[in-house]
Design a protein around this nucleic acid. Sequence first.
RNA 1: GAUUCCGUAGCUCAGCAGGUAGAGCAAUUGCCUUUUAAGCAAUGGGUCCCGGGUUCGAAUCCCGGCGGGAUCACCA
Length: 573
Amino acid sequence: MHLELSEQEQIRRDALRQMRELGIDPYPAESFPVSHTAQGILEGYEKDESAFGEVVLAGRMMSRRIMGAASFTELQDSTGRIQLYFKRDQICPGEDKELYNTVFKKLLDIGDIIGVSGSVFRTQMGEITLDVKQFTVLSKSLRPLPVVKEKDGVVYDAFTDPDQRYRQRYLDLIVNPQVRHTFVQRSRMVNSMREYLNARDYLEVETPVLQPLYGGAAARPFKTYHNTLDMTLYLRIANELYLKRLIVGGYDGVYEFSKDFRNEGMSRFHNPEFTQVELYVAYRDYLWMMDLVEEMVEKVALDLHGTTQVQVGEHLIDFRRPWNRFTMHGVIEHFTGIDISGMDEGQLRATAEQLGVATDPSMGKGKLIDEIFGSTCEGRLIQPTFIMDYPIEMSPLAKKHRSRDGLVERFEAICNGKEICNSFSELNDPIDQRQRFEDQLELGRRGDAESMVLDEDFLRALEYGMPPTAGLGIGIDRLAMIMTNSPSIQDVLFFPQMRPEKKATLDADAAFTELGVPAEWVPVLRKKGIQTLGALREQDPAKLMNDLNGLRKKMKLDIPALQPETVNAWIRS
RNA sequence: GAUUCCGUAGCUCAGCAGGUAGAGCAAUUGCCUUUUAAGCAAUGGGUCCCGGGUUCGAAUCCCGGCGGGAUCACCA
């Protein structure tokens, strides 16, 4: 007896046992090859009613309506749902009606996975339905599913609790078909980009996740430890410095879809691990890369939606080329009417304060401009827009601007008020690069925990000579949010990071029996909520005996009632 | 990390001038041979997140904790 299980779970375990007693294996080993899919039948039958003879389908039973000797259920496979018609005399042609009356009606439950074969027809109500001749149990479900119903596009009793949806994504995927679709779209998006890059003969590569030094971005890392090497390793925060070594090595174009890890706060835009694609192309600059980004993202929109227009929240976003382009100074002037070019740090600080942007004394020129941009422009850029020419202080890996002092050749694409990519003409002057790293070290000494560390081997590589190179990073999760109209990053990650579920501590049954608790009373104690010896010792003996005997009666247990001295003995021992 | 809201049956939710819990679906039982979120009827099912406090009495009020959402901060 599993007294800690809910009534519905106990009923399902009983059904499992009864199946086995009837000689039915609830978890058979053999393959069950299907001939069709739900969607294939629905679409094919609509076009040609004679298209199907016998078909074989498999999937999860999602609803059931029994009307005596006939029943309707819905079968859900990876493509969708189709109605099944079970008729007793068809399932059981002979005298023995057990397969229908007992196995189908009593031992199967919503959530069970079954295989069926039969022919396709249309009911009087006009619904394309499989007339089932045979069915096979493929997997018995022991937990009740959330039951979600839908009619005419209106969903009833939806399974919506974000906590449960993210922790038990499998349930979310079973009952919320739009969630399955979102992740299919995400996968298609990555394939679309990979196709685009492969068509240009760029090489997909892999670089280390475990790194002795972390670099390529401004972020705090996760730290781990290798036993044999007896050394600290970091989980990568970016793969930039490794990919540029490969450009030094002579490849003309390399890219990597990489999981990166940043030990920062979490929000609906941030997960501790996230995916980026980084691309480096030799003999190109950031202006060339801007064209590539436009073309690739436009292709993604077309591949996913068949159009360049994508509905995102309340906005209809159009990825059709060309996108708007602004310089950082230009866009600030566009939205505030203030021309900041040529301002020194003091003037920038005054401008920031005038615009209501919070500042603090540690902010230099670059940071101040970034703050002004962030609070006055970024959120207002809904349609895809390039912002180019960033302050040098914020960009230690980007090449100095070919014509404008104090700036670097860098752009970001902003869409729906958020950055979706970051790119520069890569800095390949090793002496300048060393100086920039040293400036970062200085920032670190001033208390900036996220400043970059100096990577000597990377500098050594640059000293051998890296061709002029354009580099790009696109946040896959962020782009997936936009392309699938998802308001939170958790909606485009199968398993977003969550706090662990709180596990109730409990002592083993044996611990209770050693104390003298009869085995048949242990489940009753658990039912009472007493899961540990400590909890037992805190009980008042008289009240406990009373409660347990009450439960004995309620649970209709055929065991002798407890006596006071027995309960006293447990608690005192 | 800060602010704020939320945590009641397997699911979605109601209950909160404080009087030991309700609905729909799901489940069980019976009837019913083509239904359209739900055929009909009956029945069972709850440590009201956890721990304290106030009170004769707490799902309800107060405090603390845990978990989650939203906004902000950091960051991509």
